[in-house]
Design a protein around this nucleic acid. Structure first.
Length: 597
RNA sequence: GGGGCCGUAGUGCAGUUUGGUUUAACACGUCGGCCUGUCAAGCCGAAGAUCGCGGGUUCAAAUCCCGUCGGCCCCGCCA
């Protein structure tokens, strides 16, 4: 405990009565009653009451009183005194330390404190700007303090778990090289090599493969991953992954590790119950077609169904085409009770700015068509067929979309989630984990006219699909496995390509020339030649895991010092300009932003 | 790159739709006073706001318009 203090405040109980204690902390609140003053002092473990009396004839101490009345909120103090039992009628059963109070012999003001930008002891809402600027004060509030502590305990638990399973923790460089593909890199200019740059890692992907080639066999690390892309509520420029990799394994072995991680974390750190045990698996194809997402929220239904038969040969040219074309779909679902929604509510469903363009709706009233932009296409018995296909009730709303497969399914998926929220179908006490498997290897990038990897170029295809690389690369499925929960992607993993020939072939398919491959990935291709073992791994995101365990939808709620939506650090005021001499050292010259670029 | 919401004392907010009876309200905090068992203590009083910034419309702007800055959220982006 050291010499500064004898006890943590939150541990004081009636068993300490009579003991001399010395406590350090902050003034949580003060309450003055003429001759009697109550000061609540708080440290990270809790709050306890200190009682000071003024009148000497009642045992008061004028010097002590003079100090005590000076105390303001959040003064940093040390209190030396005796733990006393409170009178029976003055105990506070709502307070862990509510049976006792401290009678001080000395109160030392270690540091005073100006009026606060926001209250600490009362957890009022704070604007994001103020909260982030004074994050160290927000951290004194029990709610954030608890999250930060929980994050530590989760990390500790996972570290022990990984070590127990034979993984060893290895740090990989933060200063590394930029590689093509993937997100935009954060760059660090080299002073020693003019015109050259380090990149901060988007993930330790190549290093961990090199560790396997190095015979490490089982590696893990809590890795910071940095990507210079725009934020989302669940996405910061930097985040942490429990990165791991293992040799001589199948996909099943990776899933086993992930089950241990997620099972352990959910059991120890969440009061929510697992929806299904063991964690169910679903193919990418099934997830996209049933839920319109590769990270489906399985806490509610509203599943997408095939509506092609309903619209085959209908009078709407786009739906008729979508029902027939092999690369298009027509799907939809019924929204219970949505038939009576206003035109405004219905129009809000279809907004290209929110990624729900191309959505159509059919509003029913007492089983009949109330209104729909598809009215003319629902001639004859098509309306009945649509009702049957979606199992729609008489006053439901039916959501319909047809068009290019991926875009249409994703639009439907967004509407599905919006409807799940609007109708409050989501059970907040559930953790609906799933493993998504059998991802395609590539998707077609129409803008650039080339194949690009769905995950990354190191993913090993399923063995039986390797021949398809030559004949039908878009049909190749891989060993990738994603862990999802409550609509969030928590983790991505896979077996990796471990022969130089296959790796070169995949690089060629995505348009990397042999020359480029050698220049940018020569280190890896060379390493693969030296008896690289079959290997694979995954990288569970720590921040997102905490989010679902705690039930928050904002990553900044689980990070000690988060950035703003636009990527600034309001506390340190970063990014910031630097001294011209620093730029000169780095051989850099700053040009003002160009207009309209 | 595109779209939406927000910005009013230290903090959180009302007022903005329909410009003028508003001296910009309320709560917490701050300051002063009262109070011997409070625990979101209570009671009385006071100070504290060029309504994010710039421009415009108008007899008159927190309120309407344009621009800009900042925060939040979505699409794109994020292997």
């Amino acid at each position: 405990m050291g010499t500064w203090r004898t006890h943590f405040i939150g541990e004081l109980r009636s068993t300490h009565v009579g003991q001399q204690v010395r406590l350090c902390g902050w003034v949580n609140t003060t309450r003055e009653h003429g001759d009697l003053l109550f000061v609540l002092v708080r440290d990270r473990t809790g709050v306890a009451q200190v009682r000071i009396q003024q009148s000497r004839d009642a045992g008061g101490d004028s010097r002590l009183w003079a100090t005590a009345v000076e105390l303001g909120l959040e003064f940093c103090v040390r209190v030396t005194g005796t733990v006393a039992l409170r009178p029976d009628d003055a105990r506070n059963p709502d307070m862990p330390t509510g049976d006792i109070e401290v009678t001080p012999v000395e109160i030392e003001i270690l540091n005073d404190c100006p009026p606060l930008p926001f209250p600490i002891h009362r957890e009022t809402e704070i604007s994001e700007t103020t909260a982030l600027k004074y994050r160290y004060l927000q951290m004194r509030r029990p709610s954030l303090a608890r999250v930060i502590r929980l994050r530590h305990e989760l990390v500790l638990c996972l570290r022990n778990l990984m070590s127990g399973m034979g993984f060893i923790e290895i740090e990989t460089p933060l200063l590394t090289r930029s590689t093509p593909e993937g997100a935009r890199d954060f760059l660090v200019p080299s002073r020693v090599y003019p015109g050259r740059f380090f990149a901060l890692p988007q993930s330790p992907q190549q290093y961990k493969e090199l560790l396997m080639i190095g015979g490490v066999d089982r590696y893990f690390q809590f890795a910071r991953c940095l990507r210079d892309e725009d934020a989302r509520a669940d996405r910061q420029a930097e985040h942490t992954q429990l990165d791991f990799e293992m040799s001589f394994v199948d996909r099943e072995d990776i899933i086993e590790v992930l089950e241990a991680i997620y099972g352990g974390a959910a059991e120890r750190f969440s009061s929510k119950r697992l929806q299904r045990i063991p964690i169910p698996r679903m193919s990418y194809h099934e997830a996209m077609h049933r839920f319109g997402s590769d990270k489906p929220d399985l806490r509610f239904e509203l599943e997408l169904v095939d509506l092609s038969p309903v619209f085959t040969g209908c009078s709407s040219p786009s739906l008729a085409k979508a029902a027939a074309a092999p690369d298009e779909v027509v799907r939809g679902f019924a929204v219970p009770g949505g038939g009576g929604w206003s035109r405004k509510e219905l129009d809000a469903l279809v907004d290209p700015a929110t990624g729900t363009g191309g959505i159509a709706w059919v509003a029913l009233k007492e089983g009949a068509l109330r209104s729909s932009p598809l009215k003319s296409a629902l001639d004859g018995d098509r309306l009945d067929a649509l009702r049957r296909a979606t199992s729609a009730g008489p006053d439901d709303l039916i959501i319909v979309a047809g068009g290019l497969r991926r875009k249409t399914l994703e639009s439907l998926g967004r509407v599905r989630v919006a409807m799940g929220r609007k109708l409050r179908l989501i059970d907040e006490d559930v953790l609906a984990f799933a493993f998504i498997i059998d991802f395609p290897m590539f998707e077609w990038n129409a803008d650039e006219g080339r194949l690009e990897p769905v995950h990354h170029m190191f993913v090993l295809p399923k063995t039986e699909h390797i021949p398809l690389l030559d004949t039908a690369p878009l049909e190749v499925l891989t060993t990738q496995v994603d862990a999802v929960c409550n609509g969030y992607e928590l983790c991505s993993g896979s077996l990796r390509i471990y022969t130089p020939a296959l790796q070169k072939k995949v690089m060629g398919l995505i348009g990397i020339t042999d020359e480029d491959a050698q220049r940018k990935f020569g280190h890896l291709l060379t390493a693969l030649r030296f008896g690289a073992p079959p290997h694979g791994g995954a990288a569970p995101g720590l921040d997102r895991l905490l989010m679902v365990l705690l039930g928050t939808d904002r990553m900044s709620d689980v990070v000690a010092f988060p950035k703003t939506y636009s990527g600034r650090d309001l506390l340190m005021d970063a990014p910031a300009e630097v001294d011209p001499a620093q730029l000169a050292d780095l051989h850099l010259r700053v040009e003002p932003p160009r207009e309209g670029v």
